[in-house]
Amino acid sequence: MTAAHSSDEARRAEWAEVLEEMEGEVLDAERSIRGNRAEEIAAWGRRMEDWTPPTMLGPLPLDLRERAARLLQHQLAVAEELVERITQSQRQRDVAARMAYRPRPVAAFVDRAL
Score class of each variant (00 low, 15 high):
M1N: 09
T2S: 15
T2R: 14
A3V: 07
A3N: 07
A4Q: 10
A4E: 10
H5I: 10
H5V: 13
S6K: 14
S6Y: 08
S6F: 10
D8S: 11
E9N: 03
A10I: 12
R12V: 00
R12N: 03
E14H: 15
W15D: 02
W15P: 01
E17S: 09
V18Q: 03
V18E: 06
V18A: 04
V18N: 00
L19N: 01
L19F: 03
E21V: 09
M22Q: 10
M22D: 05
E25S: 09
E25N: 09
V26I: 09
V26F: 15
V26H: 11
V26A: 15
L27E: 10
L27C: 02
L27T: 11
D28L: 15
D28M: 12
A29Q: 02
E30A: 07
S32V: 02
I33S: 03
I33P: 05
G35L: 05
G35R: 10
N36T: 12
A38F: 00
E39C: 01
E39D: 14
E40N: 00
I41P: 00
A42Y: 00
W44F: 08
G45E: 03
R46V: 06
R47H: 04
M48P: 03
M48G: 14
E49K: 08
W51H: 13
T52G: 10
P53N: 10
P53S: 11
P54A: 14
P54V: 02
T55P: 14
T55M: 13
T55N: 09
L57E: 12
G58F: 13
P59W: 08
P59N: 13
L60G: 03
L60Y: 00
D63E: 13
D63N: 13
E66C: 07
R67F: 01
R67T: 04
A68E: 05
A68R: 06
A69F: 06
A69T: 15
A69P: 03
R70Q: 13
L71Y: 02
L72W: 15
L72Q: 14
Q73H: 15
H74A: 06
H74M: 05
H74C: 03
L76E: 09
L76H: 04
A77Q: 09
A77F: 06
A77R: 11
A79M: 06
E80F: 06
E80D: 15
E80C: 07
E81W: 03
L82P: 05
L82V: 10
V83F: 01
T87Y: 00
T87N: 02
Q88S: 12
Q90T: 12
R91S: 08
Q92I: 15
Q92T: 12
D94W: 04
A96C: 02
A97M: 03
R98D: 14
R98Q: 11
M99N: 12
M99T: 11
A100G: 03
Y101W: 06
R102Q: 08
R102A: 14
P103A: 08
R104N: 14
P105S: 06
V106L: 07
V106Y: 01
V106Q: 10
A107G: 04
A108D: 12
R112F: 11
A113Q: 08
L114Q: 07
L114K: 03
